[in-house]
Design a protein around this nucleic acid. Structure first.
Lengths: 119, 119
DNA sequence: TGACAAAATGCGCATGTGCGCATATCGTCT
DNA sequence: AGACGATATGCGCACATGCGCATTTTGTCA
């Protein structure tokens, strides 16, 4: 495979990470503060298996970072570029939707901008 | 399904469009000037069926635009935001690769910045 | 040590997706 | 109209992916 082909594969893999609704929900759940698997599971009404697996995948992809503390595993965003891209995509999609649609409002607030590191 | 769920689905679908190496190659092939299906097929050494299908998908996704002229169909980029995002991703990924790797150079040149509309 | 809680993983199933072959559709030219 | 070229699409196959169940692994606490 040529160098170029490898490059395309890498970029495709990067996009793949965020091409799944559940992974986006997880990203959204931890985009403001780190959370444990259990917290995410409860917040999203998902199964522990599924959340854990998606987190592992995102971890391999370098999107999230893991911190172990006793029994629990805390996950947080590791790739802020990814967050920024998600924000851009939300804005882009919202631009194609009727102004009055509630969906539009939801999109624009999906990924909040990071506030300056408060204490 | 809640409004939020719909939003996540839309964003995931948007990412899905570019999570495929062949589609990225096609995007790359037409990112500077519009081309016919045949031209792309020859340039990428791909089959007509596959290129046509991927173009259709990207067209539905609003990423490319179609222009019919006689027998042929010209495709061009319709979503410049998508191009910008691809550039960002390439830069992001290149940042994780050894400086001397040729792959890195390839990534940074994958999606050239648009030149000012000449003429 | 044993019981318990949190998280990760092997397995199988259902569905999604990329691909090529053959064919259909559409436009051109004689 | 008939032949030809360009593009789109129905069909089936091979493989990837998301999911849940059951189990394992890892750490805590009595």
């Amino acid at each position: 495979m040529s160098e170029l082909d490898q490059a395309f594969d890498l970029v495709a893999a990067y996009f793949s990470v965020m091409s799944e609704p559940m992974r986006l929900k997880i990203l959204h759940a931890i985009c403001e503060k780190e959370k444990t698997v259990s917290e995410i599971v409860e917040e999203l009404n998902a199964t522990q298996t599924n959340v854990s697996r998606h987190l592992s995948l995102m971890h391999r992809g370098g999107v999230v970072a893991r911190r172990k503390e006793g029994n629990q595993a805390f996950y947080r965003i590791a790739d802020t570029v990814m967050l920024e891209i998600c924000r851009t995509v939300c804005t882009r999609i919202a631009g194609h939707i009727d102004e009055r649609a509630p969906l539009r409002r939801g999109l624009l607030k999906l990924i909040p901008k990071p506030r300056h590191k408060s204490a």
